[in-house]
Each structure stands twice: as C-alpha cells, then as structure tokens.
Amino acid sequence: MPVRHEVLHCYGELASTMSLMAALARAREWERLAELEARCAALVDRLKAIGKVSLDPVQLEQVRSLIDCIHSDQEDVCDMVKPQLESLMVKMAQLQKRSELGKAYGTPY
C-alpha cells in the first residue's frame, strides 16, 4: 500500500474505532473500551512510524475531516468515562478505608 494511502487508511481506521468507542460509552458498555483504546494506540504508533508525508489537497482535507471526527468522539468518550473513573476511585477509597478499619479493629465476622 502506498504511504499516502496508508496514512488515509490509518486515519480512517482511527476515526471508525473512536466512533465505536463513543457509541459503546453512550451505551455504557465499558468492557471493550480498553481493547479499542489499544487499537487506537497502535494506529497512532503506525502513523508516527510513517512520519511526515506530503498529501495532495484532497487527501489533506480528508485527513483534517477525519481528525475533527476523531477529536469530537474522543471528547465524548472522555466526558462519559471520567465520571465512571471518579466513581470507581471513590469506591476503591471506601474499600481501602474498610480494609484499614478491619485491620485496626478486627472484622465483625
């Protein structure tokens, strides 16, 4: 695959993966997000490895459009995941506190 087409392919795959992540986050289906995030990271690594490529004006516009979609979906995912992470942190802190109290005073069971 010529490098220019590979760049477009990678950005297209990145955009579709981020779109899927946003849809899964909206549906509160968190299980697949890590797998998809790893796929995004691999695509970004591939783009970095390809390096700077000169694109024709049409290809450049396609990439810009895809990047806009990627950023939008990424913001949506972050907005939906952040409260979940904060809730998880609170629950973990509560469990840690219970564990510390159990060690200090003994468990009631």
Results as ranks from 00 to 15, higher is better:
Ala49Trp: 03
Glu6Phe: 02
Met89His: 11
Ala41Gly: 02
His71Gln: 08
Leu88Asn: 11
Asp73His: 11
Ala27Trp: 03
Leu33Met: 05
Asp76Ala: 01
Arg39Thr: 11
Glu29Gly: 06
Arg98Met: 15
Glu86Gly: 06
Ala27Arg: 13
Ser87Gln: 11
Asp76Gly: 00
Ser99Val: 11
Ala22Trp: 09
Glu31Met: 09
Glu13Asn: 13
Cys69Leu: 12
Arg26Ile: 05
Gln96Glu: 15
Glu37Asn: 09
Arg39Trp: 05
Ala23Ser: 12
Met92Asn: 12
Ser16Lys: 07
Ser19Asn: 12
Ser65Cys: 07
Lys103Cys: 07
Leu20Ser: 14
Asp73Thr: 02
Pro83Trp: 11
Cys40Gly: 02
Leu33Val: 04
Gln84Trp: 11
Gly51His: 12
Glu86Ala: 13
Ser16Asn: 11
Leu36Met: 10
Gly12Tyr: 02
Val58Gly: 04
Pro2Val: 06
Lys48Glu: 10
Ala27Val: 03
Leu33Ala: 05
Val90Ser: 08
His9Met: 06
Gln94His: 12
Glu31Phe: 09
Glu13Trp: 09
Tyr105Gln: 06
Gln74Tyr: 09
Ile50Lys: 01
Leu47Lys: 00
Glu31Asn: 10
Ala49Phe: 05
Gln84Ser: 09
Thr17Ser: 14
Val3Leu: 13
Leu20Ile: 13
Ala34Asn: 08
Asp73Ala: 04
Ala15Gly: 02
Asp73Asn: 10
Ser65Val: 05
Cys69Asn: 00
Gln94Ser: 12
Lys91Gln: 14
Asp73Lys: 02
Ala49Thr: 09
Ala34Tyr: 10
Gln59Met: 06
Met18Ser: 01
Ala25Phe: 11
Lys103Arg: 14
Leu66Gly: 02
Gly51Met: 10
Leu8Cys: 08
Thr17Gly: 01
Ala49Glu: 14
Lys91Ser: 10
Leu43Glu: 01
Gly106Cys: 04
Asp79Ile: 07
Val7Ile: 13
Tyr11Pro: 02
Gly51Glu: 06
Ser65Pro: 00
Ile67Asp: 07
Glu100Leu: 14
Glu75Tyr: 08
Asp45Phe: 00
Ser54Gly: 02
Lys91Leu: 13
Leu95Lys: 07
Asp73Phe: 05
Pro83Tyr: 12
Gln94Met: 10
Val63Asp: 03
Leu24Ile: 03
Ile50Met: 05
Cys40Ser: 11
Ala34Thr: 09
Pro83Met: 08
Arg28Gly: 01
Ala15Asp: 02
Glu35Lys: 00
Ala22Arg: 11
Arg64Pro: 00
His5Cys: 04
Gln96Cys: 03
Arg4Asn: 14
Glu86Tyr: 03
Leu8Asp: 08
Leu24Gln: 14
Tyr11Glu: 06
Ser72Asn: 05
Pro57Arg: 01
Met21Ala: 01
Leu55Trp: 08
Met89Arg: 15
Val90Ile: 13
Val53Trp: 10
Lys52Leu: 06
Met1Leu: 00
Asp79Asn: 15
